[in-house]
Amino acid sequence: MAFRSGTDARAPDAACEALSLDIVATPQGVRAALARAAGMLSRADLCPTVQGCIELVLAEALNNVVEHAYSTSEGGRIAVRLDPRGETMLLELRDNGRPMPDLTLPEGQLRPLVGSGDLPEGGFGWYLIRRLAVRVTYRREAGTNVLQIEMPLGRQSKGI
């Protein structure tokens, strides 16, 4: 799975170079990728809140790939790229697992809570991703899932 540089890509900030990882689609692989990403983001000297939001969104996206795209297969791989682009950080994940249902991103709507003991298992990840990102896109090309999440690095953050 190779990354193609888009024609609209701006040069990475000198303090923060792009990071590309090829990880095994397991919880251990996700943890290792998150540790590497955290190191890269720390070197970028980002606001701790911005760094935390990027790490949270990346963790949610990677865990979704492991849990849903590769839930019935072993040995899957995920190509991960973090690419600073001016005021945003592009997170791109590519995998050859199962496609999203109907080739469509989940809406990311919160489910209503009925009572204090009725917290649903899951269902918050896509809400967080959509709420914290500037833009989220998904496509399937030649048997590969391509998820792109554009995260704000500064003033354009929407917050939770």
Rank of each mutant, 00 (worst) to 15 (best):
A2E: 03
P99I: 02
P101D: 03
L82S: 03
V80L: 13
L91I: 12
V65R: 05
M100A: 11
L128K: 09
T137N: 12
G122N: 04
Q51I: 02
G6S: 06
E67A: 13
Q148D: 10
P101S: 08
R139T: 12
T88P: 05
I78F: 07
I23A: 03
A35H: 15
D83Q: 06
L46V: 01
E141P: 13
D83F: 06
N145I: 02
P12W: 05
K158H: 11
Y70P: 08
H68K: 02
A37C: 11
P27R: 04
L128D: 10
A69Q: 12
G29M: 08
N63T: 12
S71N: 00
V146M: 14
D95G: 05
V114H: 15
G75E: 06
Q28V: 03
R77F: 01
S116I: 08
D118M: 04
R4G: 02
L19G: 00
I149P: 09
S20W: 02
Y138E: 11
L62K: 07
R139C: 15
S71D: 11
G143Q: 13
Y127Q: 11
I160K: 10
L110D: 00
M100S: 07
D118C: 01
N64S: 14
A142F: 15
R140P: 09
L91G: 06
P101I: 01
D118Y: 09
L119F: 15
L153T: 09
P152Y: 05
T144F: 14
L41R: 06
S5E: 00
A9K: 00
R139M: 13
R43I: 09
R155I: 07
M1A: 00
G75K: 11
G123Y: 10
N96E: 15
R111H: 13
S157N: 11
L58G: 07
Q156K: 09
Q28L: 05
V146P: 09
Y70C: 08
I129P: 12
V24F: 02
D8E: 05
V66H: 05
D45F: 11
N145C: 14
M100G: 00
L119E: 12
I149S: 14
E87I: 08
R135D: 13
D83N: 02
L19K: 03
R98D: 01
I149G: 13
R111Y: 01
P99L: 01
R85Y: 04
V24G: 10
A2L: 07
C16K: 00
A44R: 12
Y138D: 12
R140N: 14
G122R: 02
R36G: 08
L56F: 04
P84C: 06
P101T: 06
I149N: 14
L90P: 05
S20L: 01
A18M: 06
T137F: 11
G52V: 07
M1Q: 00
R98Q: 05
Y127T: 10
G75S: 03
R10C: 05
M40P: 06
R135L: 15
I54W: 01
D118R: 11
E74L: 08
